[in-house]
Design a protein around this nucleic acid. Structure first.
Length: 258
DNA sequence: ATCTATTCCTGGCTGC
DNA sequence: TGCAGCCAGGAATAGA
């Protein structure tokens, strides 16, 4: 499941090859996944290929391209189109495939950056501790669902929310606005830390994440709570618990996270 | 303005 | 061995 570190890994892998290259043809094999007229980027060069939260964005000489990988989306420079290929980008000198088993991904072409993407919260790796604490204070909900809310911070998904809360020693059900300054500061640092470590490891390969060359990430071996229900907490040895919070599973240590 | 619940989607797993 | 039923969780959307 591609979250910020996985999308960052993909973008870094693709950028050197994609940037400045002209798109000759776009074939969408799953119209449900397209927004806008994808053919509008044909004949244009890819510029400013970048990550924005979990979105992949590019300017294409006056037309805008946004890609979201959903749960199982992959952008591949190698291999042939297969059963799960949803969009084929034919570029000068090669082909970029958007494969997605579950079709929860999206490819959007628009005149400019769509407002709902522009409105997302700040980058977790760019926000400072003071601004983070201030943003937390104005929220009424619980901290875990808030971390998943892309208008609060952009790019954090279930894995890194659980891992950051564990590192900060905060229970996922804690009311966000009730966190002390010290704990909020610790959470800010934990988010940075876990995302940076995950990017360094090439992301987490849970289910079927791979980078643009088909390579698996390594960070799943460093997960301390995510997907480790019943296992011993690496800090205190207590059994990791899994609960459902806001329709999502939340993994935590009942002793370390209060 | 914010937050919560529902929907989409299919491979892989569990249990009978 | 086969199959029903459930689970995973991104964002969009509707409703509170």
């Amino acid at each position: 499941m591609p979250e910020l570190p996985e999308v960052e890994t993909i973008v870094r892998g693709l950028r050197p090859w994609l940037e400045g290259r002209r798109i000759k043809r776009v074939e969408c094999l799953c119209p449900r996944m397209a927004r806008g007229d994808l053919a509008r980027i044909e004949g244009r060069r890819i510029q400013n290929f970048r990550r924005h939260g979990k979105f992949i964005l590019a300017d294409c000489e006056g037309v805008f391209l946004a890609i979201h990988l959903g749960m199982t989306g992959k952008l591949l420079l190698e291999g042939d189109p297969g059963r799960y290929t949803r969009v084929v980008f034919t570029l000068e000198g090669g082909v970029l495939l958007f494969d997605d088993v579950r079709t929860l991904g999206r490819v959007e072409v628009a005149a400019r950056l769509p407002a709902r993407i522009a409105r997302l919260g700040p980058e977790p790796l760019a926000i400072g501790p003071e601004e983070f604490i201030e943003r937390l204070g104005g929220r009424r909900g619980r901290v875990k669902p808030l971390l998943l809310n892309q208008t609060f911070l952009r790019g954090i998904g279930n894995i890194y929310a659980d891992e950051a809360l564990f590192r900060a020693g905060i229970h996922p059900r804690t009311a966000a606005a009730r966190l002390s300054r010290a704990r909020a500061r610790r959470l800010h640092a934990a988010i940075r830390e876990v995302l940076e470590e995950a990017i360094a490891a090439g992301g987490s390969s849970i289910s079927d994440y791979v980078d643009a060359t088909g390579k698996l990430g390594e960070f799943q071996f460093q997960h301390r709570v995510y997907g480790r229900e019943e296992e011993a907490c690496p800090r205190c040895g207590a059994a990791i618990r899994r609960i459902v919070l806001a329709q999502r599973s939340a993994h935590f240590c009942p002793r370390c996270q209060r």
